[in-house]
């Protein structure tokens, strides 16, 4: 764990007990997040990216989910905290934004009341001060005529405005860490870019650390300093965004980038990854991408490959690339 990291996740695993069996949603995720860093977690549905985020903030239902490994935030281990301590950290030092803004808001209270209430609860400010700060926050997230919007109910706002208001709510207690779970996925493309730019600007100004979960390569590219590509509950490649995008070092990342149609030429078939993601109830003790990988060999099926560094901060969970026997 480096000196300036504010979040340290070590061998995090999440299992869900269901009627059909045990779902291995997250299988050993480790990373450090530095102060002011933006980590993008890129993965498809079922890769465990959202579950990882929820495990960090302790949002998974304890009766179904068993969590292993350690999550240290600000020098304290999250899983050893009581519910009260966890609640104090959530909202104040770690905040989360979602794909669907309506889940963050109570439909029967105005946006201003809800932001002010959070400020009063966590900071003990007076109502009047809290309202003033709520207005400042709405201005910060570039909501026009912020003062008037304080009195608006969530459903009276358009999708993009709701998303901005949710960001304002998340920022209300100056969190050190912002967890973003696909916050732009439900938005139209012209609004999406506005929200991405807003988040980037706020992150720079406030010096927050951000973990941004997305399935969209373009969105991840726009927002991330560092990228982690997730597959079957594991990070399969991590590194600076520039390196991962320009020089993918895991066959899955490579396949994902070449199956996004931007790289394809019109009138030619796409370079698609065959097959489908593995069944999380029956993960093999092997490289989980091997059944779909065109470079797979016998050795890939003998145990889960380690996340091995290629350069100082670019790592891959591919045996052949890791041993320098494969150039992508």
């Amino acid at each position: 764990m480096s000196q300036d990291s504010i979040l340290s996740v070590d061998n995090l695993s999440v299992r869900f007990r269901t009627h059909e069996g045990i779902v291995h949603a997250v299988n050993g995720v480790s990373f450090d997040l530095a102060q002011g860093e933006v980590l993008g977690i890129l993965g498809e549905s079922g890769s465990g990216k959202s579950v990882t985020l929820r495990a960090i903030i302790g949002l998974l239902p304890r009766e179904y989910a068993s969590i292993g490994g350690r999550v240290r935030f600000g020098g304290r281990e999250i899983q050893h905290l009581s519910n009260e301590e966890l609640n104090a950290i959530r909202g104040a030092r770690i905040a989360m934004i979602f794909q669907e803004p309506m889940v963050a808001f109570d439909p029967v209270f105005t946006v201003g009341d809800q932001i002010a209430e959070t400020i009063v609860r966590h900071d003990g400010a007076s109502w009047r001060d809290a309202m003033r700060r709520a207005r400042d926050l709405l201005e910060l997230v570039q909501i026009p005529s912020a003062k008037r919007r304080l009195a608006a109910y969530p459903h009276e706002m358009s999708g993009g405005m709701q998303q901005r208001a949710m960001i304002a709510l998340a920022l209300s207690c100056n969190p050190q860490l912002l967890l973003a779970d696909e916050p732009t996925t439900a938005l139209d493309v012209t609004v999406q870019i506005q929200i991405i730019l807003l988040l980037r600007e706020l992150q720079r100004e406030l010096g927050m650390s951000v973990i941004f979960v997305t399935h969209d390569v373009g969105v991840a590219t726009e927002i991330s300093d560092r990228l982690a590509v997730m597959y079957a509950g594991r990070f399969v490649e991590t590194g600076p965004a520039v390196d991962v995008i320009e020089q993918p070092r895991h066959p899955y990342t490579d396949g994902l980038l070449s199956s996004t149609v931007l790289s394809a030429r019109q009138g030619h078939r796409l370079n698609a990854i065959p097959g489908a993601p593995p069944d999380l109830m029956a993960l093999p003790d092997a490289c989980s991408f091997a059944p779909r990988c065109r470079y797979a060999e016998e050795q890939c099926l003998s145990g889960v490959p380690a996340l091995s560094p290629i350069t100082r901060d670019h790592a891959t969970r591919c045996l052949r690339v890791g041993e320098g026997r494969l150039e992508l």
Binding site: P144, T190, L197, E222, T260, L262
Partner: peptide
Amino acid sequence: SMPSMDPRRRTEQAPLTGDPPN
């Protein structure tokens, strides 16, 4: 408005402000 696929050349300004009208 399409997200850039090039991490060295990210979008710097949103071409439109606000949401599509109702």
